[in-house]
């Protein structure tokens, strides 16, 4: 191809890396959405907001608690996860049995409220969050420099995704979850506290979003709008991968990140829209998504 002539390997690897980084966030966030949807039948539009809150909690912990990145990586998902569990118990639970649309409207409203509050308080500019010293610097791979922190993000996301997949597909707790997705009242009649499991699932999904938020903080800065920015693409990923498939959402997340990155090299004009173009095509050919079940 003529186009390729003007592209250096450096550019290609660079964009591939950016693609993998973005893909890491897409995978983490869309997997959380899939987990929540599978169990609650709710399309969690507040996911981006919780991602943003996760980053802000890390910022607060550092600013007001003097707690470093590593503490935040554990504490922020914990705090935001508990917040999510509270939201499920008090608000989302009331929608049980209603149409998808209500859950979508409720969580969308929730996202607007949360994002609005942060916007009001902190404006729209970003707050820098330092890269942890242990992860500053870069590896020289010979053909390119790989910033340590970016490698860390990719590995972290991959490990978190695989651990979640394993927990759901290969453990006893996961079997409860899958069974409850099919027939919650029967699982409950076997003696499992399904309502508690639903709360925990929402809390866990939201904690994953917060985890992604902390991972993102040193790369993108901490901004009230950061969730809204990424969530549109994440939903496109979910539509392409199909709602409710864990492995599907992980695979689609990473792949689309890379495709987006490659598009920046070969055809930069459409790099911001390529995901949506793919979404439209998938919707026409396979409306339930590549790995999904019909909803």
């Amino acid at each position: 191809m003529l186009l390729t002539l003007s592209i250096t390997p450096m550019q290609l690897y660079g964009q591939l890396l950016i693609g993998l980084i973005n893909g890491s966030f897409y995978a983490l966030l869309s997997m959380g959405l899939a987990v929540i949807f599978g169990m609650l039948n709710v399309v969690n539009f507040a996911h981006g907001a919780f991602y943003m809150v996760g980053a802000f909690v890390a910022y607060f912990l550092l600013q007001y608690g003097g707690m470093n990145y590593w503490a935040a990586l554990v504490l922020s998902p914990l705090i935001v996860g508990l917040l999510g569990a509270l939201v499920e118990r008090t608000i989302i639970r009331r929608l049980a049995g209603l149409d998808h649309l209500y859950g979508l409207l409720l969580t969308f409203g929730l996202a607007l409220v949360i994002e609005g509050l942060f916007q009001n308080e902190f404006g729209s500019s970003g707050k820098p969050y330092p890269t942890p010293p242990a992860l500053s610097g870069a590896y020289n791979l010979g053909f390119m420099f790989l910033p340590k922190y970016r490698a860390w993000v990719i590995v972290c996301s991959f490990v978190a995704c695989m651990a979640t997949w394993f927990a759901i597909e290969r453990t006893r707790l996961g079997a409860y979850l899958r069974a409850a997705t099919e027939n919650p009242s029967l699982v409950r009649a076997f003696g499992v506290n399904v309502p508690l499991m639903i709360t925990a699932t929402y809390g866990f999904g939201v904690a994953l979003a917060a985890f992604a938020g902390v991972l993102a903080a040193p790369i993108y800065q901490v901004r009230p709008g950061m969730g809204a920015d990424i969530i549109a693409v994440v939903f496109a990923v979910v539509v392409i991968g199909g709602m409710g498939s864990i492995l599907g959402s992980i695979l689609t997340g990473f792949t689309l990140g890379v495709i987006e990155g490659l598009t920046k090299v070969f055809y930069p004009e459409i790099s911001n829209t390529v995901v949506f173009v793919i979404m439209a095509i998938v919707l026409i050919i396979r409306p339930s998504g590549l790995f999904g079940r019909a909803i």
């Binding site: 069974a179 997705t181 099919e182 009242s185 029967l186 409950r188 009649a189 499992v192 399904v194």
Partner: peptide, 24 residues
Amino acid sequence: LSSDRIARLGVALCPEERGIFHSL
């Protein structure tokens, strides 16, 4: 009592539709 509490008293149901989980 909720059904999970009743189950934990030692009551078990084999439902008419059998309720085998297909994803398991």
